[in-house]
């Protein structure tokens, strides 16, 4: 029983969304999706976030209790969480509020910093990938050099055919392999969805009866 009801919910929910994806009928598109599902999901997402906050708080409070390695950082989580929540609850979330100031001047620059690190990580990954240790790696190296040169004026100066060769590499061998992977991914995701819908894959229900 502990497994049957969740399994039925999953199967029923899955079948409804299969109908939503394939049927343009008013009942499923408008009545179910727009009038029923979307308002419910907006309401439920708040509770999901609440569960997440509880989970994170429990993890950090346990770390502090157990004096786990680097437990002092957990106080920073609580400090950040309380200050941000108070700023939102007291000052509101409109433009010009403390919360928006914190978002624009703290969170955005920190996210941008993380994103900009990607450029350096890409250079390091490219160095590893382009070391010509085998014939395949050499082909990769040559293809990458051609594609990169074609993006800059220097490439056209070297050869006026460079952009055309680069486009051919992107449109033919590159796209063929991407489509091959996409085909496999499509079939794999359909098979996995069917396994869940038909109750073959049940690991998410846990091991109890």
């Amino acid at each position: 029983m502990k497994k049957t009801i969740p399994l039925l919910i999953v199967i029923l929910g899955g079948l409804i969304f299969v109908a939503w994806a394939f049927s343009p009928h008013y009942l499923i598109q408008e009545v179910f999706y727009n009038q029923f599902y979307l308002p419910w999901i907006y309401a439920a997402s708040g509770f999901a976030m609440f569960l997440g906050v509880i989970s994170l708080s429990m993890m950090h409070s346990n770390k502090i209790k157990r004096r786990a390695p680097k437990w002092q950082y957990s106080y920073l989580f609580f400090a950040g969480f309380i200050v941000t929540a108070l700023a939102g609850f007291i000052g509101g979330t409109q433009k010009g509020s403390v919360l928006m100031w914190m978002f624009e001047n703290m969170q955005m620059p920190m996210s941008a910093t993380m994103f900009s690190l990607l450029a350096f990580y890409m250079a390091s990954a490219a160095y590893k990938a382009f070391r010509a240790r085998s014939p395949e790696a050499t082909v990769l190296l040559v293809a990458a050099i051609v594609v990169m040169l074609a993006q800059v004026p220097l490439g056209v100066r070297i050869s006026r055919h460079m952009p055309a060769i680069s486009q051919w590499i992107l449109d033919v061998p590159n796209l063929a392999s991407k489509r091959g992977i996409a085909l496999g991914v499509g079939l794999g995701s359909v098979a996995t969805s069917l396994k869940i819908l038909l109750g073959i894959e049940r690991s998410y229900l846990g091991g109890g009866d």
Partner: peptide
């Protein structure tokens, strides 16, 4: 169970 926890739904905050 404390090893499986929510971190954040913000992409780069998650990476950090």
């Amino acid at each position: 169970r404390n090893n499986v926890f929510y971190l954040t739904n913000v992409q780069f905050a998650y990476v950090a």
